[in-house]
């Protein structure tokens, strides 16, 4: 009888464990978020630290952003023109390319690319610092690793991602322009004027920018959190790096839906 009871209670424990574990992880993340925000004052006091990290997060991601942006624009131009031409409206390809980039593809794709290029690198770097006791050493030197190591990367990420997104958008639109105007023969004037008339500053550009800021906070926070809380072994760091990319992708796509629902609901 007691054996049976034990099995039943064991079953419920097994059922509840993943939930409680996730809640614990969430609580830890929330506490860490507050800790990082509070420590972020160092970014203003010592901008040199942020500039250094912006080099690794922003400048190092430029190539992948430029190349991907160009190709996304090229493909969008081709695909959209092909579809629109069936309805005799191939002329509005500029508008379709610009709208899809500025509203959705730009923020989302750049966030995904940056999280795999820079986010994973940040996780690996911090995780390795933890594994080799560099973070402990820093603490023993009376320096807060959250302020000295995490906060500059956090600030640099938040500054870099929106800029990279804007660059991605512009390069993408340029790609669409190349295909539409030079390959498919859409009139240059029509291409730009259709775009200008349809893309709204507040509705599209500002909303896209807001999205990219939200994504920036999400992916860079996931990156530093995974790194800082990685298990201090080679295995733990590689797991944390993978987790950064996977979680960033899920969070970015989920957030994108929520943000889009808020922003474009009435339009």
């Amino acid at each position: 009888m007691s054996d049976y009871l034990q099995r039943v209670s064991g079953f419920f424990q097994a059922l509840g464990r993943p939930v409680t574990e996730q809640l614990v992880a969430l609580g830890r993340a929330a506490r860490f978020f507050v800790e990082v925000i509070l420590a972020s004052g160092i970014c203003l006091r010592r901008p040199g630290l942020v500039v250094r990290e912006m080099y690794f997060i922003g400048v190092m991601s430029l190539v992948i952003i430029l190349v991907s942006g160009l190709f996304v624009g090229l493909v969008l131009g081709l695909q959209m023109y092909d579809t629109l031409e069936r309805f005799g409206s191939g002329d509005i390809v500029g508008m379709v390319v610009a709208l899809s980039l500025v509203r959705e593809l730009g923020p989302v794709l750049s966030a995904l690319l940056i999280s795999s290029r820079a986010g994973s690198a940040v996780t690996a770097e911090i995780g390795l610092m933890k594994t080799t006791e560099q973070l402990t050493a820093m603490e023993m030197m009376a320096i807060q690793p959250v302020a000295r190591v995490v906060a500059p990367r956090f600030c640099a990420g938040i500054l870099s991602v929106p800029l990279l997104t804007a660059i991605f958008n512009v390069v993408g639109i340029f790609g669409g322009y190349l295909v539409a105007v030079h390959l498919l023969g859409v009139d240059t004037g029509t291409f730009w004027s259709q775009m200008e008339s349809a893309v709204d500053f507040r509705m599209d550009v500002v909303n896209g920018f807001i999205k990219s800021v939200f994504f920036a906070v999400a992916i860079i926070f996931i990156a530093v959190f995974q790194g800082f809380h990685a298990t201090a072994t080679a295995e733990g760091v590689s797991l944390a790096t993978t987790q950064t990319v996977v979680k960033s992708a899920l969070v970015v796509l989920g957030m994108d839906f929520v943000l889009t629902a808020f922003m474009f609901r009435g339009i």
Partner: peptide, 27 residues
């Protein structure tokens, strides 16, 4: 050199934002 690259990156990003606002959205 590092500062130069970061400066270039920020300038590019801001130029892109201005381009999006003025040329694409016709603000």
């Amino acid at each position: 050199l590092l500062d130069f690259w970061v400066g270039l990156f920020v300038a590019l990003g801001i130029a892109a934002l201005v381009f999006l606002s003025l040329r694409v959205a016709n603000l």
